[in-house]
């Protein structure tokens, strides 16, 4: 059942993005930035946590979960250190994705040439 919810939720997010992309002048860069902001704003009332509970991987794959992870790590640290903790814990949960992308990009650009 969680696979069906994953399919529907991740598909629905992508559908919204595609509709915005086709019907407005916004570029993919605008849309991904917008979705990150939406993802972190959904964490104000713990809405995204509840979505992840029901949807599982489908909620973790779209870029909205990136914004959610940012604010989630920040609030975890903030419970110990107060407002300064928000800056300390900001990248706690997103660090693996960003680090992995940087390292893979470094090695791949060393070995591969662009096709054209």
């Amino acid at each position: 059942m969680i696979y069906l919810y994953s399919f529907l939720f991740a598909g629905f997010i992508c559908l919204i993005g595609q509709v915005i992309l086709d019907n407005t002048k916004l570029s993919p860069g605008h849309i991904t930035s917008l979705f990150v902001v939406i993802g972190s704003s959904l964490d104000i009332f713990n809405i995204y946590d509840k979505i992840i509970l029901y949807v599982g991987g489908g909620a973790l794959v779209p870029i909205t979960s990136f914004g959610h992870s940012l604010i989630h790590g920040a609030l975890d640290k903030a419970s110990d250190f107060g407002p300064i903790g928000i800056a300390m814990g900001m990248f706690d949960l997103t660090a693996p994705g960003i680090s992995a992308a940087i390292v893979f990009t470094f090695f791949l650009t060393l070995f591969f040439k662009p096709k054209d």
Partner: peptide, 21 residues
């Protein structure tokens, strides 16, 4: 058509994510 393709491909990505987890 674009919206449908985005829905299906995005949904498959979600299934892959859940399967990997």
């Amino acid at each position: 058509k674009n919206a449908l393709i985005a829905f299906i491909v995005g949904g498959i990505m979600g299934i892959i994510g859940q399967f990997l987890i």
